[in-house]
Design a protein around this nucleic acid. Structure first.
Ligand code: SF4
Ligand code: SF4
Lengths: 136, 136
DNA sequence: CATAAATACTACCTCCTTGTAGTATTTATA
DNA sequence: TATAAATACTACAAGGAGGTAGTATTTATG
């Protein structure tokens, strides 16, 4: 149910880049703009590249650029790369002996929220988040 | 937004005890019944006692017993002792420069869920959870 | 009073996440 | 072709949460 710090960083980077989708950014620029540790980013970005969210240009004047499909990249697809999205299907109480079948009184209340949040993650795209001149 | 393992343990213990509110349980019994590490419980229970959820009887034949107000103990009040409930007021994306005022498009969707879950925690009591013969 | 059975306290160990450091590789360009 | 500026890789350090261990204290009971 919780976003890891790494997922937060990833989302922040991608939302920032989605505000100027044509622009190419070096790790150093992202680091200075978003206040995310340089070396941490240096490890995160390659994995975002591997996941197909951005593409890297090597060598001098290189950097990262969003892929053109960014309009359709959902929060869920980002979380999936970092955190494993299936944590959003689990019991919020951490009980293991029950599920949608045999449920405690909370389940009826919790289930709909869980499902709605999951659907939200699967619906909202980078474009939605970038739409406003939203200060990161 | 996430319950720590310790909160989960606390809730599991208290829900279990709320099913037989008159009963006194030793740490060892709780440990064997709920499969929570003995020594871990031995540290958790005193804090539940300090928080006023249970009362301890020392010495031989001692143990823990629910306080009589258990019917009105909410999930929120338990989380509060362990995790600090205020994590339910924060941004799920971890951004710091925004809030209910200046918001990203997610906020309109996320806010209501956050509030509903918070209210749920503040509404559901141990008695509600214990109501069914719910296998812990 | 001695013993056993319980809670209380305190220190430590382990694992995972986050963050840091150093070095290798790639490529534009003077 | 040398240099500079960028990404890529790998190892390690710090911190917190979860879990373990040992010992002290309390109290019923024979
Ligand atoms: S029934 Fe209750 S404990 Fe079980 S998965 Fe649902 S919310 Fe969690
Ligand atoms: S506006 Fe968006 S980023 Fe800001 S607190 Fe709300 S959900 Fe989080």
């Amino acid at each position: 149910m919780k976003l890891s710090k790494t997922s937060e960083h990833a989302i922040r980077v991608l939302v920032f880049m989605a505000q100027t989708p044509e622009e190419q950014y070096s790790v150093n620029t992202l680091h200075e703009t978003l206040n995310i540790p340089f070396k941490y980013l240096g490890r995160l970005m390659p994995s975002l590249a591997a996941a197909g969210f951005v593409v890297a240009t090597h060598g001098k004047n290189g950097g990262y650029k969003l892929l053109l499909n960014y309009e359709f990249v959902t929060i869920a697809s980002i979380i999936d790369v970092i955190d494993a999205m299936d944590s959003y299907s689990q019991c919020i109480l951490g009980f293991e002996n029950c599920g949608d079948g045999k449920s405690c009184p909370l389940h009826g209340y919790w289930g709909p929220h869980r499902d709605a949040i999951k659907k939200l993650w699967e619906t909202v795209t980078l474009k939605d988040l970038a739409k406003r001149g939203f200060k990161i």
